[in-house]
Design a protein around this nucleic acid. Structure first.
Lengths: 344, 344
DNA sequence: CGAGGGCGCAAAAACGTTTTTTCTTGCGCA
DNA sequence: TGCGCAAGAAAAAACGTTTTTGCGCCCTCG
């Protein structure tokens, strides 16, 4: 109806305009088949002029794909993370979604997760799983369903036969060493670590990096592992444990910004001056860290870069029949703020 | 290959198992056609048992829909908002995505927005536009393309002929009045307003509510409108303007949390005590507001409820041929924190 | 000069549904 | 006894692509 501006134009319309068959149009635009370049260009020009946009459903129907990518934060009963819990995830998501749309895919964010049925009725061509935890049933479910997966952070457990893992990660061991060194250089003598339980590669790496660093410096290990839900309260309790030691730390590194904020609360309650009595640093930056008093020094993981790389790898994994993209390692950095600026 | 657990089962498989035709299965499951209830139930049971999940592409191909919903934050040249700028949007998005998946749709988040081509190659059945600004070309583009739109916040401009607007919003006039009253009850004498330029209904309502309130109380209007990018720096500058007045305000309400945080910075720089010399409140709560020193009182808009309602309305709008869902109004609240707890 | 082989393109099949149309059977009623 | 009608179900068409197969034609080479 109307003059046609509303009626979607399909491959037949292009074919009619170019006076060729739909087959030829398809071939011309996809680069397949046997056609002289002149014809290809002619058809491409006409398609462009008509504003032809192939129907994704029809295309996907033939190829057997859905055209959708999924992204989900890994969780288990022990670690009930949610989408909005961390600024880190938001930044990652934002970058991923941009990268996906740029490449013609839609990125579906998993919301309320129920068991392994992560994407409900929606089925995806592949999924990005953020910070996979060891006992997340979702990973096994995705494997069983044959869904290509890229993880952000490395998977735990023995290598699954045949299939190579595909992941994007930071070098957390190195990042941990660098923040510890940063603290030491600013005058810290005894540095404690507050970490979540080692269910993610990220945490395991941080603990490993810490232990290695202690070893090389001959410092006593002071590790407090947080169990249960991750929030400021958990950080407070962990910090209290460390600060009640006979020889308490004079600096604490927490592997999550929310824990670091908890340390700050605990320090205040104890009347400790930050950074003079106690330095505090956290991993992953956030608005809250920046706005705390004093602002907290943070290790940044470049979540935007991680998100983009993950989408890129996932698409390569889906399209590249059988060939698995190489792992990607994203550089880290330190955002130096007042919480570690002790007067010499 | 294998024992069949991998080969997706389709409507034919169900038909074969039930010893009927695919047509009958389709009718049985959709409730259409003429079938005795006994047959319907029998087929439904078999489909369930086999774990039949209809292919969304095939279905959408017939119906001419894509099965995708889009969500995007409105912006224009003057107000270059980004996805990750506000905790508010994150909370809204999180709720929306859950609501969508629950109803079998995928919610696509628009990332890097370039001109009106919001969803790139991906085309959506409908879109949620968050906080529509007057001159956002996207809205016109969506209208022109015939894409059903639900806005979060009301659209500007004259009613477009024929089509009724479909929106979800808070009562910002009332919310503004209530926070102003809250400030007054805690001892504020002269309340200033910092707002973004009135490009969204939200801002216009806040300004209107403020003016109305001033009128009824006989208070001088002290409004500072922020132009350009919205960040703490903008808040600082706006606050400085207000605080340099001959009779400066002793309380400031800012219509965005980032602006309120800027006010806090300005107060600190001027050596003003918060809340004794200056009370501060912001609209939309955020982690940073909660972690500021002192923590900032905030008007909360219940973004989760907004997100859910928007998805709900959008699906109704898409499916209900012609009938436009009623507007929805979501209640607001006040999160009372230290920045407004002036000693009597 | 006839056969083989590209080349340029089109016809047809396929993807998995839904929707429309057609067929069969049994039954009530004249 | 025959006719029409309704119920129940199947067949066929359609959705818009891609992929596979096929068909002329011209050129080249023996």
């Amino acid at each position: 109806m109307g003059d046609g501006s509303i009626g979607k134009i399909g491959i037949r319309d292009v074919a009619a305009a170019a006076d060729v068959s739909p087959t030829t149009v398809s071939h011309a635009l996809s680069g397949k088949g046997r056609l002289p370049d002149a014809t290809r260009r002619r058809i491409a020009a006409i398609a462009e002029e008509l504003g032809y946009r192939p129907n994704a459903n029809a295309r996907n129907l033939v190829s057997g794909k859905s055209g959708l990518l999924g992204i989900v934060v890994s969780s288990s009963k022990e670690t009930p993370f949610g989408l909005a819990d961390f600024d880190y995830f938001i930044q990652l998501l934002s970058a991923a979604t941009g990268a996906a749309v740029e490449r013609g895919r839609a990125l579906v964010v998993e919301g309320l997760r129920i068991g392994a049925d992560a994407f409900g009725q929606v089925d995806v061509d592949g999924a990005i799983v953020v910070d996979p935890v060891s006992d997340d049933p979702l990973l096994d479910a995705l494997d069983a369903a044959g869904v290509p997966v890229v993880t952000t952070g490395r998977r735990d457990g023995p290598p699954r036969d045949g299939r190579a893992d595909c992941w994007v990660d930071n070098d957390h061991v190195k990042a941990t060493e660098s923040i510890l060194t940063h603290l030491a250089e600013h005058g810290a003598d005894r540095i404690g670590l507050i970490s979540t339980s080692p269910v993610t590669s990220y945490t395991r790496d941080a603990i490993h990096g810490y232990e290695q660093w202690c070893e090389s410096r001959g410092q006593e290990r002071m590790i407090q592992v947080v169990e249960g839900p991750i929030n400021e309260g958990a950080g407070v309790r962990a910090a209290e444990q460390l600060l009640e030691m006979s020889r308490p730390p004079d600096a604490i590194y927490a592997t999550l910004d929310q824990l670091a904020l908890g340390v700050l609360l605990a320090a205040r309650a104890k009347g400790l001056n930050v950074p003079d009595d106690l330095m505090i640093a956290g991993c992953t930056d956030s608005q809250a860290s920046a706005w705390a008093e004093p602002p907290l020094t943070a290790v940044t993981l470049n979540p935007e870069a991680i998100g983009q790389a993950a989408v890129s790898s996932l698409i390569d994994l889906i399209d590249g029949n059988g060939t698995v993209p190489e792992p990607v390692i994203i550089p880290t950095g330190i955002i130096d703020r007042q919480s570690t600026a002790r007067a010499a």
